[in-house]
Amino acid sequence: MFPADFDYVVPRSVDEAVAMLVHYGDDAKVLAGGQSLIPMMKLRIASPRVLIDVNGIAELAGLRRDGDRLVLGALCRHADVAASPLVREHLPLMHDAAQLTADVQVRNRGTVAGSLAHADPAGDWPAALLALDTHVTVAGPDGTRTVPLAAFLVDAYTTQLGANELITQVAVGIPPGRTGGAYAKFERRAGDFAVASAGVQVTLDEAGRCAAVAISCGAVAPSPFRARAAEAMLAGQALSEDLLAQAEHAVRDEASPFADTRGSVEYKRHLAGVLVRRACVAALARARGERVDTLHL
C-alpha cells in the first residue's frame, strides 16, 4: 500500500511555500506532520501530484508567548503542546487535548495546524480550540489574513483555506485569572479518534459564580460546535450540581451525531452530555486553583 507517484519540493520560507502553492495550484498539497495525509495517500483517498514539505521552514516551528496570546507556529507538534509548561499553566484545556490526541509517535509528528486544516469531525484540536479564543493566520499570494477558528472551520473536512494558502500560525488568547479549562474525550481504545469529546473553559467572578463560559463538542455533529444553549444556562450562575445536570441535558439535545461503528445516535448524545459535565467539573476545580490531572476515561 503505497502512495501514487508525486513530486516533492522543499520550500525554505513561507514566501517560497506560497509561491509554490500558487505555481502548482490544485495539484499540490502541503505536507506537515503527514500523520493524516500520508495514510490518505496510501489509501489513495488523496493523490496530489506535488507535495510541498514545509517541515524545513524554521520560522514555523514551536510555540511561544506573545503578550496575551500563545502563538503556535504551523509546525508546532502535538508533543510540543503536551510538553509546554506555559500551556499547562495557562491553558490546561490544551494540555489535556495534546495528551489525549493519538499516540506518542503520532504526537511527535502531527501538528496542531495540520489537524485544523484537515478538519476531521472527530479531530481533537478543532473541538478543543473552539472553546478557546483561537485565531488562525494564513498566508496567500495577497498577503496574510487572520480568522477566528469558528469561521475557519466550515464543515466536515472543509475549511476556509484556499488552495494557494498556507496556515502560518494558530494563536490562542491567554485567559484572565480565575479561569480554568478542561478537555474530556471518550475513545473506544487508547489513541483512537473520539466517540465524543468536550471542551469547557470557565471564568469565575469574585463571588465564585460563572462570569464566562465556553463549551465545545467534538465528534457528535458534522463538525465541532459550541453548545450555546448549555452555555446560556450556566452564564452568570453559581454552578451547582443541579445546574450542571441541566446543562448536560441541553447538550444532548444540541448534539446531532450520526450512527456508525463507534455508537448509536442515542449513545453519542448521552456521551456528549456526560463529557461536558465532567469537563465542567474539572474546569471549575482548575478555575479555583485546584490541581486536576488530565481525565483519562
Binding site: Y8, G34, Q35, I38, P39, D53, N55, V104, Q105, V106, N108, R109
Partner: peptide
C-alpha cells in the same frame, strides 16, 4: 517504530526523503 534524530516515529508514516 524507529528514532529519527532521537524522536520516536512510525517509519511507515514518514517518507524516506524526509
Amino acid at each position: 517504530s524507529v528514532l529519527v534524530d532521537g524522536v520516536l516515529v512510525k517509519s511507515c508514516l514518514m517518507l524516506a526523503v524526509q
